[in-house]
């Protein structure tokens, strides 16, 4: 990308096309489905030209619209979460799922589900607590060596993730048969169980987006190392803590609503960085828009690939993301 343009111009050049892509993804996501309600119906319904109580309107408003919005918000959150962890750990392989932060959040949510807490605030709070616990564990691991020493921290995260997986399986084995199917499907990343009533809780991630965008410039400086950032005038501890808490919070909100969807935070920032460079003032909005479009697209695949029914979207994102992770690691080793 041409660096001589002012940052505002470059921001427009990034946001405009990605915004159009997202718009396209939103409309495609809403107009595609198994019930035969198509693009034309959608346009009529969105313009208010169809009866409010028609079947088609119900399908659009009660099933597809919430699902696509959920995919967009969760995709944006996970992509942004990956971007922040990568900046703070200065490691392009860091990501909420790989580091175990999503797993911790899932453990909290499952425990709350099994003891029968309400989705909000019960499950949400437990989920946030779970992910914070993993984060504290990660920071303690990191404090032993120098913070962010490349692979050791990542390895620690992978092990925490493995542990989380075991705990989740243990919890499921305790669950009653009726709950198991539900929990398992949710775990693999399920976007179909969302209703419009949950939207206000989901949208609590938006203030986190704003905060992270405000902190984009200090994030740039943090890429050069904590001490470099500090001598350039960044309040390193304050910025780091704000970013970690905001990111953990929004990831736990995403996990509560959609289960474990991995590798979105790896794939999206990686591709965007190749296209527009390392400047977070561009990468933050780009990851939000790109992540949203990406997960809507993955969800479309999850809905359309199986001959009958659908598969969890987490399966699709892992099948795209895991090979990319391996490729990036292989290339970094050379």
């Amino acid at each position: 990308m041409n660096n001589s343009l002012s940052i505002q111009r470059r921001l427009v050049l990034v946001v405009l096309p990605l915004g159009l892509v997202l718009l396209g993804a939103l409309f495609t996501g809403i107009s595609y489905g198994s019930s035969g309600v198509g693009f034309g119906d959608m346009v009529r319904i969105l313009l208010g030209r169809a009866g409010p109580d028609s079947v088609a309107a119900a399908i659009i408003w009660e099933i597809r619209f919430p699902r696509v919005v959920l995919a967009a918000v969760v995709g944006a959150t996970l992509a942004l979460g990956g971007l922040v962890f990568q900046a703070l750990l200065r490691n392009p392989l860091a990501e909420p799922y790989i580091l175990g932060v999503s797993g911790g959040s899932a453990i909290g949510a499952i425990i709350a589900l099994l003891i029968g807490l309400s989705p909000f605030p019960g499950v949400a709070t437990a989920s946030f607590a779970g992910s914070m616990l993993v984060l504290v564990l990660l920071i303690m691991l990191a404090a032993g060596s120098s913070f962010g020493r490349r692979d050791s921290l990542l390895l620690g995260g992978v092990m925490i993730n493995a542990l989380c997986g075991a705990v989740i399986m243990f919890l499921i084995s305790l669950a009653q048969n009726t709950q198991v199917q539900h929990v398992l499907f949710w775990l693999m990343g399920d976007l179909s169980i969302f209703s419009r009533q949950q939207l206000p809780v989901l949208l609590t991630v938006l203030p986190c987006f704003v905060l992270i965008f405000i902190l984009a410039r200090p994030m740039n400086l943090l890429l050069m190392g904590r001490e470099n950032a500090a001598v350039l005038g960044v309040e390193v501890n304050l910025v780091t803590n704000l970013l970690l808490v905001a990111t953990t919070f929004m990831v736990s909100v995403a996990v509560c609503h959609s289960g474990l969807i991995g590798f979105v935070g790896l794939v999206v920032p990686h591709i965007l960085r190749l296209a527009i460079g390392p400047d977070h003032r561009l990468l933050v909005p780009a990851s939000i828009l790109g992540g949203a479009s990406y997960l809507i697209f993955c969800d479309l695949l999850a809905r359309s690939l199986p001959a009958a029914g659908e598969m969890p979207v987490g399966v699709i994102t892992a099948m795209i993301g895991a090979p990319l992770f391996i490729f990036m690691m292989w290339r970094a080793r050379r």
Partner: peptide, 27 residues
């Protein structure tokens, strides 16, 4: 008031020379 040229600097995600120098304006 003061600047430090440290012994080492991380370069995982690399900025251009002009962008790096401009970061000196942060304060």
């Amino acid at each position: 008031t003061m600047s430090l040229v440290p012994q080492n600097m991380e370069m995982e995600f690399s900025f251009s020379v002009a962008e790096t120098v401009l970061m000196g304006r942060y304060p």
